[in-house]
């Protein structure tokens, strides 16, 4: 039985434009396509300044080359997070299909949660 294999990765990353973000990741290996490169969105500066938190779900299709397309926001709790989420998806990729490999086009969704967590004193 193919079971979900949910991996929780806690990564303290140096994100593309922000050295202070923490990233958590839930993957789902039961999907038809395997993520190759997952770009982390940058927490918008205005949202950070004004202590705004939120969530965005972005849905898209993946072409044979592993590139997302038809990227659209399905739902969000605050518009300020929509653009960084869409940009992150657009910059991400999946493992390309082998020549001749046939798969029906996949549609998938990715949810980004933006949170400001209290710093724990050392």
């Amino acid at each position: 039985m193919r079971a979900f294999n949910l991996a929780l990765l806690l990564i303290a990353v140096t994100a593309s434009a922000d050295d202070t973000q923490h990233v958590m990741r839930y993957t789902d290996d039961s999907g038809d396509r395997t993520p190759l490169h997952t770009v982390v969105p940058v927490y918008p500066e205005k949202a950070r300044r004004d202590r705004i938190e939120g969530e965005v779900q972005v849905c898209y299709e993946v072409d044979r080359g592993g590139r997302p397309y038809r990227i659209a926001v399905r739902h969000s709790t605050h518009r300020i997070f929509e653009k960084p989420a869409k940009l992150a998806v657009r910059a991400s990729s999946y493992v390309p299909l082998e020549p001749g490999e046939k798969r029906s086009g996949i549609k998938t969704c990715r949810t980004f949660r933006f949170e400001l967590r209290p710093e724990t004193p050392l």
Binding site: A3, F4, N5, L6, A7, L8, D18, T20, Q21, H22, V23, M24, R25, Y26, T27, D28, S30, G31, P35, T38, V40, P41, Y43, R48, R51, Q57, T108, R110, T111, F112, R113, F114, E115, L116, R117, P118, E119
Partner: peptide, 29 residues
Amino acid sequence: LDITDPVTPTITIDDRRDPNADEDDDEGV
């Protein structure tokens, strides 16, 4: 606020089919 209530931006990327699934139900690694 950065002085009195410092926070760390945290981003969760959730590819699960049901991102609202209770974490306790996960068949985790």
